[in-house]
């Protein structure tokens, strides 16, 4: 008899998942509970003493325990059918164990944390200076943001005309500024140009560097937005006798800008973060101020404070970008 393709009737298990048998008991509650108890026992009795000599055995021991922890949680997190709440708890337990290991074994002097990193009493009179720095940072970002969007828009519009000669210059600009690290652009503008008699000053050098650097990125974002507008739109507009410039203004831009806004907002956020580079050219912005205070007070607390300020400013901005992205997706 020839071998026929099994039907559901001849083979009722046709659609069953063929997994090795250990998969069924590895994912079983009993196994998970037993392995967790083993994990706890390992953690309590077998881990080396934090103060012990760091011999190879000491590291191997730690490594095995981390491996055990990861394997145990991966076993639960990989199962699609497990309840989400339980998986969340497991993820937290895993991260907790890893943090606890870091706390014990990293050799950090934790007792110094509070009076070094968070010595807020040493910050008296400093907050105003940091606030002044933040204002400079925000000012730098605002000016560079406006200019880079303008540069990007103009470059993108010029590229839309697709003139072969002009395109060469535009592409050269985009390539040069996208391939240079921002810190290099800034340092060249601030330290090298004065030798040619051009003294920009730290604030101007920063704004020019950020505008040109991020202008290149913004122009690419705009170009992507322009390309997302269907060619039929441009043809329809041109066939009505509407000029190329009017087509850009009345047809392409209104359709491209909603597409580009999330990307542009992302670019502005990156730019705000990059204003910290201006510390290198001695612009009196947040990081520069924080470093001055750090030397003055011989405490890292001002640096920590600056980091927290950056965090507090940027997290809401990132939330806004996500919201905008969702909205443009919803509109389509």
């Amino acid at each position: 008899m020839t071998e026929s393709i099994p039907t559901l009737r001849s083979d009722p298990n046709k659609f069953l998942r063929r997994t090795p048998i250990w998969f069924t008991w590895v994912r079983h509650w009993n196994f998970i509970i037993v392995t967790f108890i083993l994990l706890l026992a390992y953690g309590i009795f077998l881990l080396p003493d934090p103060g012990a000599d760091p011999t190879p055995a000491y590291y191997l021991n730690l490594f095995l325990f981390i491996l055990f922890t990861l394997a145990w949680s991966a076993n639960i997190l990989a199962e699609r059918d497990k309840r989400e709440l339980f998986q969340g708890v497991v993820a937290f337990v895993m991260i907790g164990i890893l943090c606890w290991l870091f706390y014990l074994y990293s050799g950090t002097e934790w007792d110094k944390l509070a009076d070094q990193f968070f010595a807020w009493d040493r910050m008296t009179g400093y907050w105003g200076i940091l606030w002044g720095g933040l204002k400079v940072s925000l000012m730098l970002a605002a000016f560079s943001g406006v200019f880079s969007i303008l540069v990007g828009l103009i470059v993108a519009i010029l590229r839309f005309y697709n003139h072969p000669t002009i395109n060469i210059f535009l592409i050269a600009y985009i390539d040069v500024f996208r391939s240079m690290p921002m810190i290099v652009i800034m340092v060249v503008l601030f330290f090298a140009l004065p030798y040619l008699g051009i003294n920009l000053g730290s604030i101007m050098a920063t704004i020019v560097a950020l505008s040109l650097g991020y202008g290149a990125y913004a122009s690419e974002a705009f170009r992507a937005g322009f390309e997302a507008v269907h060619t039929g739109q441009i043809e329809a507009s041109r066939s009505l006798g509407i000029s190329r410039w009017q087509t850009i203004r009345m047809i392409v831009l209104p359709q491209a800008i909603p597409i580009v806004i999330p990307t542009l907002t992302g670019i502005i956020i990156s730019m705000f973060k990059d204003t910290a580079i201006a510390a290198v050219v001695a612009a009196p912005e947040l990081l520069k101020r924080a470093r001055e205070l750090y030397t003055q007070s011989t405490s890292p607390t001002p640096l920590i404070a600056a980091a927290i300020i950056y965090l507090l400013v940027i997290i809401p901005m990132i939330r806004i970008v996500n919201m905008l992205e969702k909205r443009t997706k919803g509109a389509k």
Partner: peptide, 9 residues
């Protein structure tokens, strides 16, 4: 553009 104003498409 002026020619196109006379030609609808």
């Amino acid at each position: 553009n002026k020619v196109r104003t006379e030609i609808g498409m």
